[in-house]
Amino acid sequence: MSEDQKAAIEALSFEDALTELEQIVGKLEGGQAPLQESIDIYERGGLLKAHCENLLRKAEARIEKITLDRDGNPAGTEPLDG
């Protein structure tokens, strides 16, 4: 699997990666894929799973509040307290 393909997987949203992983599982479980293809998509499935896990692991709570400038435009954020 080339670096390009790896980068392409990194760019996938969680949802897209999950959907593709589901398709790969379906194909492998169906047992209809030729040997070489089954090896390729198995590898890809592994990368997709790692990508999904990474996205899930990275998610963390961060609570901020918009601060507005004098004209009422967003000036930045600050932690929401209280």
Binding site: L18, L21, E22, I24, V25, L28, E29, G31, A33, L35, S38, I39, Y42, G45, G46, K49, C52, E53, L56, A59
Partner: peptide, 26 residues
């Protein structure tokens, strides 16, 4: 999140099993 983590894990193991089965079929 926990459900998703489990689901992804499940998909991962299904991938492995299916691939092992595919190989043994071949």
């Amino acid at each position: 999140k926990a459900e998703l983590v489990n689901y992804v894990e499940d998909l991962g193991s299904r991938t492995r099993n299916a691939q092992l089965r595919t190989l043994s079929n071949f």
